[in-house]
Amino acid sequence: MNGGFPPPRAMTAPLTARTTILLLAFACAVCLRSVLSGASGSESMSAGLVFAGCLTALGVAAGLPAPRRPMISVLSGTLGAAVLTVPALLRADPVSLAQRPIAGFVPWIAVAATVAVTEEAFLRGTLFGLITQLHGEAAAVLVSAIAFAGLHVPLYGWHVVPLDIAVGMLLAMLRILTGNWCAAAVAHVLADAAGWWL
């Protein structure tokens, strides 16, 4: 909040430069993951971990906000995950749900959670904070949601864009309402975990 006056250009120029570099580097990380995945696409766990490493390095370099208010984050994140998964649960096939093997779940969720947390730390932590300082919360919600959808396009195709933009906006709203990115991370991890069965 700045009382309605935009921050002086001398103050915003370094932030703008940092945000621009961050977005370009994010695009590079998405390309790197896509090239490393090759034909395996989203099933390449090693490419997912490299991507998580890139986002962590970028987020820490640009100033990652420290996690805060763990209880509120867990409760809000769980509620967010419920909103994300209930429609899929209603459409799920009960026979397929019962047949999904549990054997590979632990290694899978370990990697999926690592990727999800680093995505949230970067998008709803570092990037969201910078864009909010420059252009306000509405811009931060939209840019982080578009980036979220964009990172999934090389893995799944363009058809996921509407859903991923909407989900990205919900995760950004969790960031706004709780004041930190951890609630979005909790929602993201729980929704991914539910995806094993859904």
Partner: peptide, 21 residues
Amino acid sequence: LAVAWLLPGRPVPIYDGIGAP
């Protein structure tokens, strides 16, 4: 969210980059 869920598409929402089996 309402629009995205109503759109015809794959039956399972995909949120993250690690594909479920």
